[in-house]
Design a binder for these strands. Structure first.
Lengths: 124, 124
DNA sequence: TTGATTTTTTAGATTTCGTCTAAAATTATT
DNA sequence: AATAATTTTAGACGAAATCTAAAAAATCAA
């Protein structure tokens, strides 16, 4: 385990990322506060390996950059089509349901639910 | 309705796109067979407006380019993590289930199920 | 229809995000 | 300690999509 990867893991486990969804670029900036010279490629390399190890989860966002979250549990995302805010949502039986419907061994899923959040609903 | 947009719609409704998932670039090439001068920007413009009108659906792919499909019904996608092939899957009650679980008016969803397709399972 | 207004198209530049490269540094192995 | 394997680094590179400003086309109004 390199210092760089350990740093990224600690960032994910810190309050900085609790319940948050961070872009690679944000994570690069957070990492550089502790380790100024860390390279962009290193952040991307480690994000990839951490995702492959199941330590973090990548959400392929619609418009902008991909976003990472640190929670271990598989879950869905509510995405506001107006302000683009993302909220986690637990969907307990979805994986099992999908295995049954698909008739195949589904390994994981990515579920994005589009809606308009309360805030935006008010201010429109 | 411009000729360009009409052409793109006809391509989506033709056999060329039935049950297929096409990238913007593929659609540009298909369009240029009929209208050689059509611009890349025009294809992107119209894909966006057609998606906003609900005529087509955009799937933000993990690695490569976004992909569009022409089917009207909301549905999920089974994506093979080995060969990246995409298959449609009908998930009848998902939208209603999600509205209930989220306690909010979910407008639509994007569901990607990761699995290894039969072909790839054999050849590993 | 004619002229004015709005919308769309076009070509190419630009931006954004992420990957690749090759050398240097670090880490692991013998 | 010497060798091998892995990771980091800086910056170049690439793919995908958006932006720009001018031209063309479509729409609207009289």
């Amino acid at each position: 385990m390199t210092k760089q990867k350990a740093l990224l893991l600690s960032i994910f486990r810190s309050e900085l990322c609790k319940g948050q969804h961070r872009t690679a670029d944000e994570l690069l900036l957070l990492a550089r506060e502790k380790m100024p010279g860390i390279s962009r490629a290193t952040v991307y390399n480690n994000l990839r390996s951490m995702e492959e190890e199941g330590l973090i989860r990548k959400i392929t966002a619609d418009g902008g950059a991909d976003v990472y979250d640190s929670s271990f549990e598989l879950h869905g995302h509510l995405i506001c089509t107006s302000c683009h805010a993302i909220k986690d949502i637990s969907v307990p039986t979805l994986l099992e349901d999908m295995k049954r419907i698909a008739g195949a061994d589904v390994d994981s899923y990515e579920l994005k639910l589009r809606y308009v959040c309360e805030n935006c609903r008010k201010t429109v």
